[in-house]
């Protein structure tokens, strides 16, 4: 079966691991991001690893003009069109406190941009009566916390969007997997204080692929974050509002 995967934010550590995993299954991979040199190198890597074809395409969450050409290019491929969204930006909360203007970019990168892209893609998936969308959110989106609530709220918006999209695409045979990773050992988290139970991106990629195969709706990766977040969500607000993590 031919499958095509659009990978948004393809230079991120998690995206790279996921792209390699689908490449080894022989998929066609469209790598979308801003760093074209890096994406071209990644495309060669994926073809050597077994991808039927790998292409580098420009995508900028803040520039919707880049969205259409990617979707058009994907639509040229036969078979199922799938998309995995790894974009997002996480400025330090303290920086946001100093410059509230950073909120706009964070919301566009982590929610509005990808949502608009997926909304443009949805008719293609509906027309082909199948295909999977993987949306990478965050455990930070499960509850607004003192140390990270701007990024968290953008991801919460994305989670809600994905839930609605799942509802829509199910009707035509498509599927949406919401992925909520805990701490992952990426270039973005390298050297950040206070990280614990840090997961390897390759393990996260394996979890995501398994969730795609089993048509899971919402996964936490590594799995134990489901329990951690259940506890965090159960803390009553009068107590939670006094915590500062």
């Amino acid at each position: 079966m031919t499958e095509t995967w659009i990978i948004l934010g393809a230079t991120s550590s998690m995206a790279r691991a996921f792209a390699r995993a689908v490449a080894e299954r022989g998929a066609t991979v469209l790598l979308a991001g801003r760093d074209m040199d890096e994406l071209k190198g990644a495309a060669v890597d994926l073809e050597a690893r077994g991808a039927a074809r790998a292409l580098a395409l420009r995508f900028d969450a803040r520039d919707p003009a880049t969205f259409g050409p990617i979707i058009d290019r994907a639509a040229e491929e036969e078979g199922m069109i799938n998309a995995a969204v790894f974009v997002g930006s996480m400025p330090a909360q303290a920086d946001v406190d100093g410059d509230p203007g950073l909120i706009d970019g964070t919301v566009v990168d982590s929610f509005a941009g990808p949502a608009r892209f997926l909304h443009m893609l949805a008719p293609v998936i509906e027309a082909r009566a199948g295909g999977t969308v993987v949306g990478v959110g965050s455990v930070a989106g499960d509850r607004g916390r003192y140390s990270n609530y701007v990024y968290g709220s953008a991801k919460a918006g994305f989670h809600t969007y994905l839930a609605g999209l799942r509802n829509r695409l199910t009707r035509s045979g498509g599927h949406v997997v919401t992925v909520k990773p805990g701490f992952v050992d990426t270039a973005m988290t390298w050297g950040i204080e206070g990280m614990f139970l840090v997961a390897d991106p390759a393990d996260v990629a394996r979890d995501i692929l398994k969730a795609v195969e089993k048509k899971r709706n919402v996964i936490y990766t590594p799995f134990f974050w489901r329990w951690i977040m259940t506890i965090i969500r159960l803390v009553p607000e009068p107590i939670f509002k006094k915590l500062s993590f």
Partner: peptide, 28 residues
């Protein structure tokens, strides 16, 4: 962050080191 201050060692774990380590993912 580019540099992370960390303790690290080699396979035998007899010698250890502490210092800043970068783990680049891109050629640039």
């Amino acid at each position: 962050m580019l540099w992370k201050t960390t303790d690290y060692t080699a396979w035998g774990r007899v010698h250890t080191a502490r210092g800043d380590v970068a783990r680049p993912e891109r050629a640039r």
